[in-house]
Amino acid sequence: MKYWILIIFVLLLLVDVSGQERVLEIEFKAVYENAPLVLKSEVHQFQEKKIVFTRLKYYITNIELRLGEELVWKEKNSHHLIDLEKIETEKVVLDLPEKVHYDKISYQLGVDSLTNVSGAMGGDLDPTKGMYWAWNSGYINFKLEGVYEDCPTRKNKFQFHIGGYAGNMATVQKIEHGLTNERPIVIKVDVNQFLKELNLVEEHSLMRPSTKSVALAKRAALIFKRNDE
């Protein structure tokens, strides 16, 4: 008798779990136009000149799921540093409770202002991650570095470190995608879309909060697209 109860219980549990997706995976895929973005080794073309990317890092934070306009779930301590040099960071795995129905996902590109003024943090927010400005406190939200043939800089390097959290220098951006049944959710991040309106010969170095950073942060948010968007 006891065994029957146990077996029924286990079966119920199995049915329940298989009926709900408890784990939601989001993959951030860096691309350059339509090809995967490979750091350092691959040479791409930008405005008919050679360009090589050496670093792409950014914070994805405050992930939320919605059904229509209703917020149905939000991740606690939601801070993920995506670093193209560390492929394991490209996939964000969310543990959902049972029976969550949603058709939209939203997140922020960058670290919110409250976190920026809350002192030393650990994990992905640890200042050892190279995404914190020591001399003008605050997180770098989005970092893109590389070498472009025509950059009039030392070793032709360009570097965009986009951050700033206070007042009209705030750079954190909200991004939202409608969802289909595709799993995992794949978000393409096309770096070419970020660069295409820039003149890298003149605009190649940005390393502090400014109005330019705010404009570029807005552009950076537009390059995050779900596969069929």
């Binding site: 920026n116 003024v117 809350s118 002192g119 030393a120 200042p127 914190y132 020591a134 001399w135 406190s137």
Partner: peptide
């Protein structure tokens, strides 16, 4: 320039 005591030591270091 520094917004929190925790982060201050990072600057001179």
């Amino acid at each position: 320039a520094v917004n929190h005591l925790d982060m201050q030591a990072l600057a001179p270091m």
